[in-house]
Every structure is written in structure tokens, then in C-alpha cells.
Lab assay of single mutants.
Amino acid sequence: RLYEREDHKGLMMELSEDCPSIQDRFHLSEIRSLHVLEGCWVLYELPNYRGRQYLLRPQEYRRCQDWGAMDAKAGSLRRV
């Protein structure tokens, strides 16, 4: 689950498959919190699986710093 605000607030989007462009699919370029329910995912800073990568394991991420990012920029997401 992807959230537009910290602490799992605001608009929530659910994802169960790879997403090459978060902007195209959800009209957002920033994700401020996440909740990974199962499996491991890689969040990429840019669309089409480019830029900085962040490995996400099943857990709650209340803010972008929790997954190691300096800002909430999110371009794509892929399951590993």
C-alpha cells in the first residue's frame, strides 16, 4: 500500500504487480509512507526502474526516511 502522506495518511493506493511509472498509474511523483504486506519490493526513484533503489521488506514504513530515502521521490516499483 502506498500513501501520499506520512504515517499512512491521505490517499492510499494498493499495488500487487510491477509498476513502471507511479506517476502514470496514480498521478503521484512522491510517496510519503508505505505498508508492504507480503514479499520484497524495490522502489526506484525514477520511472522505468531507474535511479536510486530501496529494498522494501514486509513492514510498515511511516515516512520515506524509514526506507533510507532523503526525500519522497518515487518513480517505479518492482517485486523481487
Rank of each mutant, 00 (worst) to 15 (best):
K73L: 10
E17Q: 12
C40K: 10
A72E: 06
R25E: 13
Q53L: 03
E38I: 04
D71T: 15
K9V: 07
R50F: 07
R5Q: 15
E60D: 09
S29D: 13
G10P: 00
Q53W: 09
G68M: 04
C40M: 13
H35I: 14
D7C: 09
D18R: 01
N48M: 12
Y3F: 09
A72W: 07
I22P: 00
A74L: 07
R62T: 09
V36R: 00
M12D: 02
G39N: 04
A72C: 12
G39C: 06
F26W: 14
Q23P: 12
C40E: 15
E38V: 09
G10T: 00
L55W: 12
S29Y: 11
Y3N: 04
Q65S: 14
Y44Q: 05
R52C: 05
E38S: 14
M13C: 12
E4M: 14
E38T: 09
E30A: 11
L46R: 11
Q23T: 15
E45T: 12
E17P: 01
G10D: 03
R63F: 05
G51P: 00
R63V: 10
L15C: 12
N48T: 02
Q65H: 09
L2P: 00
R50L: 13
K9A: 11
C64L: 02
E4S: 14
L15N: 05
C40I: 09
C40F: 13
M13V: 14
D18E: 04
H27V: 05
E4I: 03
A74I: 15
W67C: 04
S76Y: 01
R62E: 05
G51C: 04
E30R: 10
A69G: 10
E38Q: 15
R32G: 15
Q59D: 10
I31V: 15
L2G: 01
Y54C: 04
L43I: 09
R63L: 04
L46F: 15
D66E: 13
N48R: 09
Y3W: 08
M12K: 06
L56E: 01
D66C: 06
S33A: 05
L46E: 15
S29E: 12
D66M: 06
N48E: 08
R25N: 06
H35A: 13
L37S: 07
R1I: 15
A69D: 04
K9D: 09
R57K: 11
R25Y: 06
R50I: 10
Q65F: 09
G10A: 00
G68A: 04
L34P: 04
G51R: 05
M12T: 06
K73R: 15
L46K: 13
C64M: 07
I22D: 01
C19E: 07
W67T: 05
P47G: 05
R62H: 15
L77D: 01
A69S: 13
L11R: 14
L46M: 10
A72V: 05
Y49C: 01
F26V: 06
R63I: 04
S29N: 14
D71V: 12
S29A: 11
E60N: 07
H27I: 03
G75T: 00
Y3M: 03
E45G: 06
L2Y: 01
D66G: 05
E38A: 13
R50Q: 14
L55K: 11
D66P: 02
D71M: 07
G10C: 01
E6D: 06
V36Y: 00
M13N: 09
V36W: 03
S21V: 05
L55P: 15
S21M: 01
E4G: 08
L11P: 14
E30D: 07
F26A: 05
Y61G: 01
R5K: 15
C19P: 01
E4A: 11
L43V: 02
G10Q: 03
E14Y: 14
S29L: 11
R57C: 10
D18Q: 01
Y49T: 01
L15P: 00
E45A: 10
Y61F: 09
L77W: 05
E6W: 04
H35K: 14
E14M: 13
C40T: 15
A72F: 06
S21C: 12
L43W: 02
R32S: 06
Y3V: 00
Q65P: 04
E6V: 06
P58T: 12
E60Q: 15
D7H: 10
R32K: 14
V36A: 03
L28Q: 08
P20C: 09
R50S: 14
G75V: 02
E30H: 15
M13R: 09
S16C: 12
E45P: 02
Q65R: 10
S29G: 12
Y49K: 01
K9C: 12
D71L: 06
C40P: 07
E60Y: 13
W67K: 02
S33K: 00
Y44S: 05
A74G: 06
D66V: 03
R52P: 12
L56R: 02
N48L: 13
M13W: 14
E30V: 08
R62S: 13
K73F: 07
E17L: 06
A72S: 13
V80L: 13
Y44E: 00
E30K: 11
E6C: 06
M13L: 13
L43R: 00
E6Q: 07
K9I: 04
H35P: 03
M70Y: 12
H35N: 12
E38M: 10
L43D: 01
C19R: 01
R5C: 12
R25D: 07
P47L: 05
H35D: 12
M12Y: 13
Y49A: 00
H27P: 07
C19G: 03
Y61L: 01
D24M: 10
S33H: 01
S16A: 14
R57Y: 06
E17S: 11
E14W: 06
N48F: 15
S76T: 05
I22F: 06
R5G: 12
E38K: 13
Y61A: 00
E45R: 07
A74S: 08
D18V: 00
Y44L: 04
C64S: 08
A69W: 04
L43H: 03
R62Q: 12
E60T: 13
G39E: 10
R50A: 13
A69T: 07
C40Y: 08
I31A: 05
L56W: 00
V36N: 03
L28M: 14
L2W: 02
K73A: 13
N48H: 14
R5S: 11
L28T: 05
S16W: 12
L28Y: 09
G75W: 00
L55H: 13
C40G: 10
Q23F: 12
Q65G: 13
P20M: 04
S21H: 10
Q65Y: 11
Q53Y: 11
G75R: 01
Y54M: 04
Y49I: 06
Y54G: 00
S29C: 09
E60H: 10
P58K: 11
L28I: 15
P20D: 09
L77R: 00
L34I: 15
S33V: 00
P47E: 11
L55E: 13
L77S: 03
C40A: 14
Y49N: 10
Y54A: 01
L56V: 09
R57H: 14
L34R: 00
R50M: 12
S21E: 05
G39H: 11
D66W: 04
M12G: 08
D7F: 10
P20T: 07
L15G: 00
R62A: 15
L55T: 15
L56P: 01
R25S: 13
S29Q: 12
Q65K: 13
A69M: 02
G68E: 02
E38W: 08
E4H: 05
R52F: 05
F26N: 04
K73S: 11
D18L: 00
L37A: 05
R63T: 15
R57L: 09
S16F: 12
A74F: 05
L11Q: 12
W67M: 02
E4N: 09
R1G: 02
R63M: 08
E60M: 11
L37N: 07
L11T: 13
N48V: 01
L77G: 03
Q23D: 08
L43Y: 09
Q65I: 08
R57E: 13
A69N: 08
D71P: 01
E4P: 08
G51L: 02
S33M: 04
H27F: 07
H27G: 15
S21I: 02
D66A: 08
L77E: 00
F26T: 10
R50V: 12
Q53P: 11
C40V: 14
K9G: 10
F26C: 08
R5V: 07
M12C: 08
L2C: 03
R52V: 11
L34Q: 03
P47V: 05
W67S: 03
Y3I: 04
Y49M: 00
E4Q: 11
Y61M: 00
P47D: 10
D18K: 01
I31D: 02
A74Q: 02
Y54L: 03
H27A: 13
P58L: 00
D66R: 02
K9W: 01
K9Q: 15
Y44C: 07
M13E: 08
R57T: 15
A74C: 10
L15V: 15
R63Q: 12
Y61W: 00
E30T: 10
A72P: 14
F26I: 05
R57P: 15
L15T: 07
S21N: 15
E14A: 11
L15F: 11
I31W: 02
Q53N: 14
I22V: 11
L11Y: 09
M70W: 09
L46G: 09
S16T: 11
P47A: 13
V80I: 08
Q59R: 13
I31Q: 00
D18G: 01
L34W: 06
L34H: 02
F26Q: 03
M12P: 14
G39D: 08
E30P: 00
K73T: 12
R5P: 03
Y49H: 01
W67R: 03
A74M: 02
S16N: 14
Q59F: 07
S16V: 15
Y54R: 01
L43A: 01
M70R: 14
P47K: 03
